[in-house]
Design a protein around this nucleic acid. Structure first.
Lengths: 125, 125
DNA sequence: CATCACAGACTACAATTGTCAACCGAAATA
DNA sequence: TATTTCGGTTGACAATTGTAGTCTGTGATG
């Protein structure tokens, strides 16, 4: 669905999205600024720019109160599954299992991952 | 390894890389141009630009003969496993199994994929 | 009420990306 | 040999991205 939407979230913007996703409710700039300023070392101006870009891209909604409160329009799950399918299309010729095979063959999986996957794909009867 | 390398391959450039990966040997511009001109509808100038950018980025090597012959410096496998790990780091908090879980939960897998995965993660004793 | 801090809107600016044109010299061809 | 073709190099230009400054109005605080 969000090809025209999610594809436009850039790396820096993604950091803002992650914060919004973590938050249960809409956040005012203050809260966003506080967190990202220390975690990312960004100037307030930078953070404000990122927020407005996300709003104009339609992936963040603003809700007027005293001050605007911001919340994500697309969920993290939507975004990540979109991003994953996108990767599969772009570099695995659309074959999801090729992606996984690549992970398996390139040490991309920890023992833990493998255990989880065994569980996940166990043939349950 | 190629964080500073692969991360710099852009979408358009990737099309050129794919062609070079498919080719067994180094290719002259002529061959690259012929294919991409029709498949992508790009002007020769565009194709030449993409090739030189790839060369300056160090991901394509040029070999002097009568005319330069171009071949990839990084393999498709290297690139795709790098891109996959990158995705996992960026949006799955480093957990490969989260990526796979996302695929499972978002209809990203065909029946065939699932069958293959069952096979792949079968607990063999 | 006077002042301050800050949200929101606008501007800025360099680097990257997607596309392409122009020029120049060498190889191919007439 | 004269001409055409095209590879390689350089330049171009708009859109996007990363990062940040300025200005204005208003809510918070003294």
């Amino acid at each position: 669905m969000p090809d025209n939407v999610a594809s436009k979230i850039t790396d820096s913007e993604l950091e803002v999205m992650k914060l919004l996703w973590r938050a249960k409710d809409a956040l005012p700039v203050t809260a966003i600024r506080e967190e990202l300023q220390s975690s990312k070392g960004w100037e307030p101006a930078t953070i404000k720019t990122l927020i407005s870009r996300l709003v104009s891209k339609g992936v963040v909604r603003q809700e007027k109160r005293n001050v605007y409160y911001y919340s994500p329009v697309i969920s993290e799950k939507e975004y990540s599954s979109w991003a994953t399918k996108n990767l599969i299309t772009r570099i695995y010729n659309g074959k999801a299992s090729d992606l996984i095979a690549s992970l398996v063959n390139s040490d991309g999986l920890t023992q833990e991952d493998i255990a989880e996957l065994r569980e996940m794909f166990k043939v349950e009867e």
